[in-house]
Amino acid sequence: MASFRLRNCTCPPDRKRCTCGAKWEYRIRYLDRKAGKYREKSKSGFDTKKAAQLAAAEEELAIERNGFAENGNETIKTYLEDWLEIYKKPNVKPITYSVQERNVRLNILPQWENYRLKDITRSEYQKWINELSKKYSEGTVRRIHSIFSSAINDAVHEFQILRDNPIQKIKIPKQQNNESKLHYYTKDQLDVLLEACKPVKNTKYKHSIQYYTLFSLLARTGLRIGEALALTWDDLADDRISVSKTLVYPLNSTPYLSTPKSKASVRQVKLDAVTLMMLKKHRVNQKEVILRYPGYTASADNLMFHQQDGRWLRTNVVREYFKEVCKRAGVPVLSPHALRHTHAVHLLESGANIKYVSERLGHASVKITADTYLHVTKKIEQDALDLYTAYIAD
């Protein structure tokens, strides 16, 4: 509820109108639902009571609609947590929300949580972006900045709690020698790595070839790890795998299936003869393992890869297992995503058309493929030019 008064009025109490030039002020008392207590907000400087009443009504609507009461005084931690939970979570895909929440929690809040919204300065923010660029790839820095800038844009245009966005059109440092950022295995390294995936003596389920099959599949199809872990045997038809879902396994939360990263990620991936035979062998082996080990149960969802209790494989467990295999094989310790890069690089080096590679990987555009594997495409371009030069000179 709003109240109104003339501030610093020096007129006699019995005067019906103010003649000293004092200004009107409104004061709003409202319930901060998150804090569970009442707060007050005031503003003065209005020439007439009517002007103060109109401004107060507008402010009350903003408080009721958005829940953000302070005009830039709210801490970034409070604002971002509300922004994510109330305004983003119901309106974006779960996998998108998971990425946004993780970046806010791990990358944005450690630096900015105690700042107020109105305390953000362009120069300090640019310095922070420059520091991030020393730690992360250019793409990751752009993603973090995009999330933060989107939140601040909403503070300006949706909630009217800031007058402008101080971090728009910020400069993301260009990183040189991008090829060093792309991690993949050579053909020889891949052979050694996959050989080390085979069950070793004295392991708990040493008869299982599940991890060997999983990592081989990633390396020979370019599937994302979430896409592979979401596969069921129903997704395999003849010599093709149907990719229409991805497994999301949030930290300390319940896993769930989501749609793939983009429309282009919904695709049919053709298998070579060796990979197809390997999957058939894995299917038989999976049944053998269930019969061999007490407590090892089948998947109720007909999963292609699953835990001993029949549930989805945990992505963090797969990553840790992969690291151990890398150490055992004596190859660079990377993440399973490096197998996707490996497949793409090997395809391109073998002479595959870049459009085919892009479609096989499920990229949204050929440009993404070309930019990601720039050093390989440059080599292909040079090899083609060398062939042309030799042909002309002959």
Rank of each mutant, 00 (worst) to 15 (best):
S42I: 09
D47V: 05
L31V: 11
G45R: 00
D32H: 02
P94V: 15
N103L: 05
I95M: 10
I28R: 08
L109Q: 03
K93Y: 00
P110N: 04
K49F: 09
E81C: 03
V99S: 15
K88S: 02
I63C: 05
L61C: 06
I95A: 15
R33Q: 09
P110T: 07
E60F: 08
D47F: 08
L80P: 00
L109N: 01
A55T: 05
A57I: 12
A55E: 14
A55N: 08
W83E: 05
G72Y: 00
F46P: 11
N73L: 11
E64V: 03
A62L: 12
E59F: 01
E70S: 10
Y79C: 02
R33C: 10
T48M: 08
N91K: 11
Y79V: 08
P110V: 07
N73A: 10
E70R: 01
E70L: 12
L54D: 15
N66M: 11
R39Y: 13
Y38D: 12
L84V: 08
L109V: 03
A51E: 14
K41F: 15
Y97T: 00
E101N: 09
K37S: 07
E101V: 05
S98P: 00
K37V: 03
Y97Q: 10
T48R: 08
V92L: 02
Y79S: 06
I76S: 02
Y87N: 02
G36C: 10
Q53G: 02
S44C: 08
N73V: 07
V92F: 03
N107F: 06
N66W: 07
Q100P: 09
A35D: 13
K49N: 06
N107A: 09
Y38T: 11
I76E: 06
R29G: 09
K77Q: 11
Y30F: 04
R39V: 14
R27K: 15
R29Y: 06
E40K: 02
S44W: 05
A52E: 06
G72N: 09
N91L: 07
E58C: 01
T48E: 07
L80F: 04
N73Y: 09
E64W: 02
R105E: 15
R102T: 00
